[in-house]
Amino acid sequence: MNEKVKDIKNKFESDLKNVKNTKELNELRVEYLGKKGYIQKLNPLIKDLSNEEKKEFGKSLNDIKNFISKELEELKMKLDKKELEEKLVSEKIDTSLPATKFSKGSIHPLTKVRREIEEIFISMGYDVVEGPEVEFDLYNFEKLNLPKNHPARDMQDTFYVNDEVLLRTHTSPVQVRTLEKSEGDIRIICPGKTYRRDSDDPTHSHQFTQVEGLVVSKDVSLSHLKGTLEEFAKKMFGDSVKVRFRPNYFPFTEPSIEVDISCFKCKGEGCSFCSKTGFIEILGAGMVHPNVLKMSGYDPEVYRGFAFGMGIERVAMIRHEINDIRDFYTNDIRFLNQFNRKGGLEDEA
């Protein structure tokens, strides 16, 4: 009897060697282990055996079954693996073919810089406030201590609609409007479009964007202005940036200040970017002129204020090394698409 088992084993071993794929393997399984398989066929023979022989034969039958199962299983794993590999190979694609083009739109660089400035000041407790762009002379000039025919009006060539109405030359009229309707402390920034009667060239634009800030309280000083702008400059341009004050003149502030930041390219050592000065002029500022407070109903003996204003184009030009201010208004998509990057990762130094 054991001879038969041995024959089956021998035959199986030689058959197994010829199996090439899982289909043949399954056929082999049926051939040996199936209901009509070789093993099953040996089962009826058992009844003619002695008890002793039955036991022995049963064991060898069981052994051969286990052996075949195990061998089939092992081969199946090998074949599965091989076939998967073949399938994967057959699925190989040319990953170098072009990507599907997603059109993620871009936010204009002026908007991005404006928002960044807004966020910094919002975190410092400032509210964002707007005002009209077609403005009264009264708010744009007179209530800012610039009466008609004041020579300093020459500093801001103006588009007029008529004698009393104009396109605002700065966002400062929003300060006046805010002062007029407020009582007590004020902390605002006013971003927006402004207009000057300048010819457009690489550094001038008849339309540009300003952000102006105003703080009014009983105890604010030039030192607070400096501290505030230092905080802003650090968040906007990096921790190592230094702020420099130079005296200047604006009719609506007294004292008036021109504010420079140390060049973040050369760390203040002087490079072509900052015209070898180590500093970049960034904004105008000062303590609100008492006449401005008075004209809008604040008592300058009780309240003091500081104000500052900067051009967003200038900040964006410095930040992105843009040489021509007109690029912001041409809306060439090759320009716009260079700015659709998310924040998140830090810029390299």
Binding site: S103, S106, I107, Q207, Y329, N331, N337, N340
Partner: peptide, 10 residues
């Protein structure tokens, strides 16, 4: 997928 433009007022 639209890019933001900013144009002149005048």
């Amino acid at each position: 997928g639209l890019d933001q433009a900013i144009n002149y007022t005048l």
